[in-house]
Simulated assay, not measured.
Amino acid sequence: MSEAELPRAHGAPALSARFRASPEDFRVEEIDGFEASGSGEHLLLTVEKRGMNTAFAAKRIAQWAGVQEAAIGYAGLKDRHALTRQRFSVHLPKRVAPDLSALQSSDLSVLKSEWHAKKLPRGALAGNRFVLTLREVAGDRDAAVERLRAIAARGVPNYFGEQRFGRDGGNVAEALAMFAGRRVRREQRSLLLSAARSELFNRVLATRVADGSWERGLEGEVWMLDGSRSVFGPEPWSDELAARLATFDIHPSGPLWGAGGLRSAAVARQLEEAGLADETALALRAGLEKAGLKQERRALRLRPQALRWDWRSEDVLEFQFELPAGAYATVVLRELGEIANAAA
């Protein structure tokens, strides 16, 4: 499904605006998942970069350190059109760090360096902190503030963002071609498998948003613990489940497709199967199963933390929030209004 086809949970857009007019309008800072050990063969670098994606920064750091790119680790991918802070690890077995000043440039600066015992693995972060600036904002200000309050109170659908699907959403078509026999590079294969999985998840979530069950759960629901990948259920509805759902301790979940049976049951399972029964979905399902991926789950609901906003001028709105790893700031923006990406 294209982004335009995904239903919104909070109703019609409350405003229109432009963002990413400059990298400073989209600021992202990783929230570290651990502290450096203080010793070991891996140099942890906290860097700030402007207009540079993670892969390009990793390549530059590898050149600076005189190592292969495989010696560089990072926890998450960050967009090019942003001002970002994130950590990289550099494997230096001789424990001799090159001159840090040689890495400094107008678009990349080192904020901190520490020694650590292990390579920084993907996903090893607690989340990301965003500060976003919207410009040329049009619409009713009271309606926009009310929408922000609703997002803070109820959260938003936890869609995979457009970044997962490549330019013009082409990664899903590429995944179908790969499943049909087209050969691809190893790194591209991983990207296309993720896009196929994300497409199926978004389809299920779109169905749940359309019927209003994305935040309330159904008979046969599989529940996911907040801030965790742990799941439980199905189990009979109870006052305890209702209280945990209301306090965001648990969330309804949807399938990340792979081999094996769906864990959901009853109404929840019927909805998941019905939403993934067309020809395209069946081909994606079969390809993911053949590729050896296993059934997993992802929360259907996402609530931004520490959400605050400030009108910088009549038509400039700045707001900030925190999201867990794997969540997308663009899905929060989408629930607020029609936001045009000036960097596209």
Rank of each mutant, 00 (worst) to 15 (best):
residue 267 V to P: 05
residue 264 S to M: 00
residue 80 R to P: 07
residue 83 L to F: 01
residue 84 T to Y: 10
residue 260 G to F: 03
residue 171 N to Q: 09
residue 233 G to A: 05
residue 63 Q to D: 11
residue 192 L to D: 04
residue 326 G to N: 04
residue 140 D to I: 04
residue 215 E to D: 14
residue 225 L to M: 12
residue 304 P to F: 03
residue 123 G to V: 03
residue 320 Q to M: 12
residue 230 S to G: 13
residue 252 P to M: 05
residue 242 A to V: 09
residue 178 M to Q: 09
residue 46 T to D: 10
residue 45 L to A: 02
residue 91 H to R: 12
residue 31 I to T: 01
residue 313 S to W: 01
residue 291 A to R: 08
residue 316 V to N: 00
residue 151 I to R: 04
residue 100 L to H: 00
residue 103 L to P: 04
residue 266 A to I: 10
residue 6 L to F: 12
residue 116 H to P: 08
residue 204 V to I: 12
residue 232 F to W: 04
residue 242 A to W: 07
residue 189 R to P: 03
residue 88 F to D: 08
residue 37 S to C: 08
residue 182 R to A: 07
residue 142 D to T: 15
residue 251 H to Q: 04
residue 311 W to T: 01
residue 282 L to G: 06
residue 215 E to T: 08
residue 249 D to R: 15
residue 100 L to K: 13
residue 246 A to F: 01
residue 200 L to M: 10
residue 234 P to D: 01
residue 64 W to T: 09
residue 11 G to L: 04
residue 286 A to Q: 12
residue 266 A to E: 15
residue 306 A to W: 06
residue 84 T to F: 08
residue 70 A to F: 11
residue 96 V to A: 14
residue 321 F to Q: 08
residue 118 K to T: 14
residue 8 R to S: 09
residue 323 L to C: 02
residue 247 T to L: 11
residue 239 D to M: 12
residue 86 Q to H: 02
residue 116 H to E: 09
residue 258 G to C: 06
residue 123 G to L: 05
residue 79 D to V: 10
residue 177 A to N: 10
residue 129 R to W: 07
residue 8 R to G: 06
residue 294 K to D: 13
residue 290 K to M: 14
residue 258 G to S: 12
residue 96 V to R: 15
residue 29 E to Y: 00
residue 132 L to H: 07
residue 241 L to D: 07
residue 326 G to I: 00
residue 225 L to P: 06
residue 295 Q to N: 14
residue 21 A to W: 00
residue 211 D to C: 07
residue 102 A to R: 15
residue 236 P to S: 04
residue 294 K to G: 08
residue 295 Q to T: 15
residue 24 E to K: 14
residue 275 G to Y: 09
residue 142 D to I: 07
residue 251 H to K: 01
residue 84 T to N: 07
residue 281 A to F: 05
residue 280 T to R: 15
residue 301 R to T: 04
residue 84 T to G: 04
residue 216 R to K: 12
residue 287 G to H: 05
residue 2 S to N: 14
residue 226 D to F: 07
residue 249 D to F: 00
residue 147 R to N: 04
residue 54 T to Y: 10
residue 82 A to F: 03
residue 300 L to N: 04
residue 65 A to S: 04
residue 243 A to V: 01
residue 168 D to Y: 02
residue 269 R to H: 11
residue 100 L to M: 13
residue 129 R to L: 10
residue 323 L to R: 05
residue 173 A to P: 06
residue 320 Q to A: 15
residue 257 W to D: 05
residue 68 Q to G: 15
residue 29 E to W: 11
residue 56 F to V: 13
residue 20 R to Q: 02
residue 316 V to T: 15
residue 297 R to E: 00
residue 177 A to S: 11
residue 283 A to E: 11
residue 117 A to D: 13
residue 286 A to D: 13
residue 161 G to E: 10
residue 280 T to N: 10
residue 72 I to C: 00
residue 10 H to I: 06
residue 282 L to S: 14
residue 270 Q to C: 12
residue 296 E to L: 09
residue 331 V to K: 02
residue 110 V to Q: 06
residue 116 H to Y: 01
residue 13 P to W: 08
